[in-house]
Design a protein around this nucleic acid. Structure first.
Lengths: 192, 192, 192, 192
DNA sequence: GATGAATGAGGATTCATTCAT
DNA sequence: AATGAATGAATCCTCATTCAT
């Protein structure tokens, strides 16, 4: 076989897509803008991703998975429930603040109709893993009796909001939204 | 005078936009699909909205404002803080469940780059009103000391998530997510 | 009969057409720009001129006829040939310099395909009149033996060019192009 | 490398533009008519010319430059002034008669507002060259004392008119307008 | 495999003209 | 007659995708 497809190129395309999508919005950026930013020819993009939809779905999965990795890395399985949730919380916020472009793109993709059910499932997989871990360690503990996925979703909603406050915070504001957000979440969730 | 511009037509266009945007996504639906659904000629759309961007911004404002109206209608200014928050909560969920299309479109528009800062400001105006009402009645009360906009944002994040659970709930599931969601929110927010 | 068509309005439209055509070019100005400039409704334009082509042809004729009027007014039929030509020459230049907009529009219309043969004929009619006058007084005179229409066309070509030099002339330049131009023409035309 | 941009295609587009512009007028022919006539896809036209305006300006330059080339080829720098002018004159007429389409298009473009000042400058450049040549050889000669550019413009105006007579001449008419025209020009210009 | 020119369906918008008021 | 909203064909241009080199 001649030159094999290069992972470098594939990654360059995906990374450029993030950058350029964040700047102009996912649905108003042509594939040519992506390939240009990636330093490859327009046609080359299509040897790595059959269609724009495929690229977009792939990107969605990658972002979700990378994000999950961050949340799950060094997950404190042996500590108490609060520590586990706090671990997730802090990494969630930290990642979002550190990667505003990725976050913005993820948000746009999440509400888009071009993301297939399968992609959503794949992107959600590691979070079920998370749910299971949490679920198991919750049972005999001090968490109120809500459906686990509901708790997970609540955490996500709250964390996303918190993240935006942290990111948006301008120089004067030193309020610790991260801590405050988690406090609210934990009070809401834990057994009276 | 000639035929005056008709509010009916204007509304038909906006309503059709919601329907068709919800089905195909905001950025993949051509203006022709909107005008067709509204029963007007392609050109007519442009006598009411100079460009697609203008239409989209107008739609965003309208949705936000209608939504705010619903939340604020019959707002119980004289009752206790919990009642006020619960009022908002319930109407939030109810509206979202009753208007899934509007909700979906609002979500797509909210993360889009085509919505101008001005539109966002206009759409947010009634919520500051809400914040002020809440803020005033909070001071001497039993709410923990978080920035008001932060509380408001938390409510929004939580309510949106809850709404999705209520909407998604299939026949077998009778769990009362609405109540559960509010419980979590209130425990999180209220003074120890 | 109800309100009769108003010549004022008709003229306003034609005059506005000249102004706006001169500024933006004949073929890139929409009829709406003309009606707006004329202070009438878009539709009104079409009660005076069935189509844009009709308006444009009408305008062409009017300009040509007005121009001819200027050239022929006080035509010195009894004087010598040179005086007659000089009369035309001077008025030609003077009119062009005084009416740059009309001149520009006439130039654009003259080379356009939308001007019908009939319009061209109508626009040329008074010039044949001129030709006849000239022709008659030439016969027994000192003009070289060229076809009259050829002489007429030569005069036109030369005068148009001269006019542009006069119009373009900027403050420092005091050269009398008008006189020079006629000198050239007359030397070229007159018998050795 | 991929398929390189082909000069053939570029020329085909330009040539087709001339043909189709001559038939329907510059501003009433859609770009699709040009691409069709050139045997390329509609989109292809835009890989060679970013916009219709660019195409039109390019075309103007090309026509002007080609025309200048014809006038200047084999220019008799060493002969007398009359020969030089006659050389230009004859080639002018000959080119116009041989290329009526190009001539017509050039006339339309010349009075159009879409031709940029830069294009006009570029198109005029070789004629200044001509002016300089003429100017130099005029000084010690038998030409009357008119500004050179004025003489040049006069020649152009006269030649264009003459050309139209030659082109328009129908079967019966055998009059030698070319010679007559030059005679007029030369008499007008040369020292008494 | 890489390149970028070629393709042509599709899209937002314009505009001459019509027609309800 | 006057108005200006309504119409929809037509236009320029974009862009995902294909294909010759």
């Amino acid at each position: 076989m001649a030159r094999p497809k290069s992972d470098d190129k594939r990654n360059a395309i995906l990374d450029s897509a993030i950058a350029v999508f964040a700047r102009q919005g996912v649905w108003s950026t042509p594939t040519s803008a992506i390939s240009k930013a990636a330093g490859v020819a327009e046609g080359t993009l299509f040897t790595y991703f059959a269609t724009k939809d495929v690229l977009v779905n792939e990107l969605y999965r990658r972002l979700k998975l990378e994000f999950a990795d961050v949340l799950l890395a060094a997950f404190p399985r042996t500590e108490d429930v609060r520590s586990m949730f706090q671990h997730i919380w802090q990494r969630y916020i930290a990642w979002g603040v550190a990667n505003p472009e990725k976050f913005k793109v993820m948000a746009q993709l999440s509400v888009s109709d071009q993301i297939t059910a399968e992609s959503k499932a794949v992107g959600y997989a590691p979070f079920t893993e998370l749910e299971r871990i949490a679920s198991a360690s919750i049972e005999q503990q001090q968490i109120a009796d809500y459906p686990v996925e509901f708790i997970a979703a609540m955490l996500e909603g709250l964390a996303e909001t918190t993240m935006q406050f942290v990111a948006r915070r301008n120089s004067g504001d030193t309020y610790d939204y991260c801590a405050a957000g988690f406090e609210i979440f934990w009070k809401g969730i834990s057994k009276s």
